[in-house]
Amino acid sequence: MIISRITKQKKNQNRYNIFVKKNNEEAFASGVHEDILIRFALRKGMELNDEELQSIQQQDAIYKYYTLTLNFLSYRMRAKSEIITYLQDKEAEEEEIAHVLKKLEDEKLIDDEAFAEAYTRTKMNTSSKGPNVIRRELMEKKIPQNYIDEALAGYSKEIEVEKLTSLLEKKMSSNNRKSFNQQLNQAKQSMLQKGFNMDSIQLAIEEISIEKDEDEEMEAVRFQGEKAWRKHERKHEGFQLKQHVKASLFQKGFPGDLIQQFIEEKEEEEV
């Protein structure tokens, strides 16, 4: 087949349409990027066989996916697995993906080791995520285990405790009318869910010397006790009512002496 004409595409000035004549009939052969046109020195009158045309089409596809990936990378660093998923969504073939990845790796545009370090550093400095959550996220991005371990070595125990200290102080400073023990347990659970280690949480608690305020604790007992009293007085009275209220307050983590003080206050109201 012979290239009969080459025309510039109207919607994309960097792409060209290649037409060939075969058996005296002209037909569209392929669209190619300007760079591919130059690389293969395509011109009118040039003779091509099927194998050469297929090679041109493959190189054009690789170039297209490469430029798409460059745009994808322009927003932030990407893990290798993210690029593979992106190209698969663009319906790239495995061979095309392999060529694009090789080119990007040669140009140092993808590097899972550097990605793991940057990702860990960013999450550590700008979020409330602990090392265990960051580890899980890196694993989900299919980062090799040794790269993850090396990156998380930068999230030291000292940094973890420092971050936890700040988070716990905020959690425990708000008077939400819950028992001190309940607030503390909820704070611990929240920190665990954020990916922090229990031993670091305990160190942070010891460091900030969290202590309960007796007046606030009593206020919380009265608030929760009144709620429990209204709930159970619909079905119970006398001794049974008091026992149900006590049980409810115990479950919420209040100390026995403050619970008893609340019950005595309620008894005085009844007199």
Rank of each mutant, 00 (worst) to 15 (best):
Glu52His: 13
Lys123Val: 01
Gly154Val: 02
Ile97Glu: 07
Ser190His: 10
Asp257Ser: 13
Asp213Pro: 14
Ala79Lys: 03
Val100Leu: 11
Glu34Arg: 09
His236Glu: 13
Val100Pro: 11
Leu73His: 03
Glu226Asp: 14
Met139Tyr: 03
Lys102Ala: 06
Glu82Asp: 10
Leu42Trp: 03
Ile6Glu: 05
Tyr63Cys: 06
Leu138Cys: 03
Lys10Glu: 01
Phe196Pro: 00
Leu70Asp: 02
Ile259Met: 07
Gln193Cys: 03
Leu48Lys: 10
Arg230His: 11
Leu241Thr: 07
Lys108Ser: 09
Leu73Arg: 02
Glu169Leu: 15
Phe115His: 01
Ser190Phe: 08
Arg222Ala: 13
Tyr119Thr: 12
Phe115Gly: 02
Asp50Ile: 01
Leu203Ala: 14
Glu226Thr: 09
His99Ile: 03
Leu164Cys: 06
Glu95Asn: 10
Gln240Asn: 14
Pro131Asn: 02
Ser190Gln: 11
Asn185Ala: 06
Gln186Tyr: 02
Lys102Thr: 03
Leu168Glu: 00
Glu211Trp: 09
Ile2Lys: 12
Ile159Pro: 02
Lys90Ser: 02
Ala247Met: 12
Gln58Leu: 04
Tyr147Ala: 00
Ala118Phe: 05
Arg177Leu: 13
Ala114Lys: 11
Glu269Phe: 11
Phe115Arg: 04
Tyr119Phe: 15
Gln183Phe: 02
Arg39His: 11
Thr120Ile: 08
Ala27Asn: 14
His99Tyr: 13
Phe254Lys: 08
Lys157Asp: 11
Ser190Val: 10
Ser55Tyr: 03
Ala220Leu: 14
Met46Phe: 08
Gln243Val: 13
Asn71Val: 00
Ser166Gln: 09
Asp215Ser: 15
Ala116Phe: 02
Gly253Gln: 05
Ala98Leu: 07
Asn23Trp: 01
Asp60Ala: 00
Lys10Arg: 02
Tyr86Val: 12
Ser4Glu: 12
Ala27His: 12
Arg234Pro: 03
Leu184Arg: 08
Gln260Lys: 14
Ser128His: 12
Ser156Asp: 05
Ser166Asn: 12
Ala118Leu: 06
Met139Cys: 01
Thr120Gly: 00
Ser209Met: 14
Tyr86Ile: 10
Glu267Trp: 07
Glu169Arg: 15
Ala41Phe: 01
Ala220Tyr: 11
Phe180Arg: 07
Val221Trp: 08
Ala118Met: 05
Ser166Met: 07
Asn12Thr: 05
Gln54Lys: 13
Ala118Ser: 06
Gln260Thr: 15
Phe250Lys: 15
